[in-house]
């Protein structure tokens, strides 16, 4: 894929995700990567997150989110490729 390719993935996060710090943390981290990170659904144990941007940065978002703030535990992340534009 060329260097300005982008893709959009739906992340399904599972774990102990209820802490109020989590959604603002996600927004900040997406901003720091310069990509779109929109939460489409959120509950105490599951969060759906639409992530759009260059593939390497979407990977970076997954890594960052897998850690998140200290009061959150992300047990697993399922990724589903919705769209990719070479």
């Amino acid at each position: 894929m060329s260097s300005n390719a982008t893709c959009s993935d739906m992340f399904t996060l599972r774990g102990d995700l209820g802490a109020p710090s989590f959604l603002p943390w996600i927004a900040r981290h997406a901003g720091r990567l310069g990509i779109i990170g929109r939460v489409t659904a959120a509950s105490a144990d599951e969060v759906s997150l639409l992530v759009e941007g260059p593939p390497d940065l979407v990977d970076a978002m997954e890594l960052g989110v897998s850690l998140g703030p200290i009061d959150v535990w992300v047990e697993s992340i399922k990724r589903e490729r919705l769209l990719s534009r070479p």
């Binding site: 901003g31 720091r32 310069g34 260059p54 390497d56 940065l57």
Partner: peptide
């Protein structure tokens, strides 16, 4: 191959 975004 990654073009770093301005955010970084």
């Amino acid at each position: 191959d990654l073009v770093p975004p301005e955010a970084i």
